[in-house]
Design a protein around this nucleic acid. Structure first.
Lengths: 217, 217
DNA sequence: TAGATTGTTAATCGATTAACAATC
DNA sequence: TAGATTGTTAATCGATTAACAATC
């Protein structure tokens, strides 16, 4: 597949489409039109058709889209037709939550390594995986050909962990530390900034309170 | 403050500005120009000035921006000059992680209630807060005038929890269940879709592998 | 005052939506 | 075939960037 350059906006919508199609699949729905899907998701049918057509012709004129086929195609686009060998660095509450989380929604992410610097945690087992010493991380990543490193350490150590993961040869980093990491451009990086998300929420709360007043103007 | 309508894009950038300004503040930097800040963040100086000017005139011509003043102003815009009474519903690993997280970064979010349906968890203490029975949630939210409800239950129960929180009178909901909740428009809602974020990452990994091939064209 | 940098308008760019021809 | 709905082009809308006048 020789993709044209895809905008960040479209990429951010793909997992959402996938979620709704997964839901429809579970409900046993076989076909859906861009119009029906747009009502479900709350966007325009035009956008849906544009987005899909960036990647291929997944529908059939006069009929719509086959839910199963479309779901599979989106999975392929998102790279979810593959398995990813994964390590988590930083086995605090969040690290443990993500271990269980990926274990629970278990499609394709195998957490095969957990790493921490805390001697009290090293040796513990979480979902059958033993927590290893952080100093062994780089060698492990290289030897096991780890695809994804998840960073759940604090801000101060996150960049060092990222550097180690990169040296070990990971393809992608999923970062939860509240900092913008620097990685070489051949390594994929996506960050979940929880505090940013919370602050967007308080912003919304604040403006809504203002809006209450403005309504009377 | 009578805000004009602010685009989602700007709102998403505000917490990021705040993060960098916080860092500069900690480093003891007193003033910064839009140009210096743009290099730090990796965006255009023009965008920074546009963004700030949406909310007010925070700078001084010929000088730049006072880091402390700007930081405080952004905090006010984000509503971070207030305290938020908060409950968490669903005390699994993620709920516990967020309890510790907000406890650790403790500015303004007081987790005063934890709720779950699991009798084995009810009664436990996390950071001095006892886990209560979910059936008491609505009354508690109303009595204590809770501002924010955090949802860390599974997809199946998330909407019911949201409805209960809304009935109790929360101002905002921070949702971690992988579903798009419906709430009345006077209630703020922000969701962290962890799986979506992970799928964006696998997308990036996939396209980078393609890009490797395309480079040779 | 001269130099620097903001605040703000105008130009550009990209993303979304509308419209319709293609086609199942 | 007629009806429906996609695929795709064209029009619109909004967001980003460039430019420069205002001003500290």
């Amino acid at each position: 597949m020789n993709y044209p350059k895809i905008s960040k906006a479209i990429i951010r919508r793909l997992p959402k489409y996938r979620r709704y199609l997964g839901q429809l699949k579970r409900q046993g729905v076989e076909k859906i039109s861009s119009n029906e899907l747009s009502e479900l998701i709350g966007c325009t049918a035009s956008q849906i058709r544009q987005d899909f057509n960036t990647f291929g012709e997944f529908g059939q004129q006069g009929y719509g889209y086959s839910v199963n086929y479309l779901y599979d195609e989106i999975n392929k686009i998102l790279g979810l037709d593959k398995e990813y060998k994964t390590v988590i660095v930083g086995v605090g509450n969040l690290g443990q939550a993500l271990t269980n989380y990926t274990y629970y929604y278990k499609i394709g992410f195998n957490i095969i390594g957990l790493f921490d610097v805390n001697p009290k945690i090293i040796g513990n087992k979480i979902n059958d995986v033993v927590v290893s010493d952080y100093s062994d991380l780089e060698a492990y990543v290289e030897k096991e050909a780890i695809d994804i490193g998840i960073i759940t350490v604090n801000r101060e150590n996150a960049q060092a962990v990222a550097d180690t993961l990169v040296k070990g040869g990971v393809k992608g980093i999923w970062n939860f530390a509240p900092i913008d990491l620097k990685v070489p451009k051949h390594v994929a990086l996506n960050s979940v900034h929880l505090s940013d998300s919370l602050h967007e929420l308080t912003y919304m709360i604040s403006t809504m309170e203002h809006a209450g007043r403005e309504d009377r103007d």
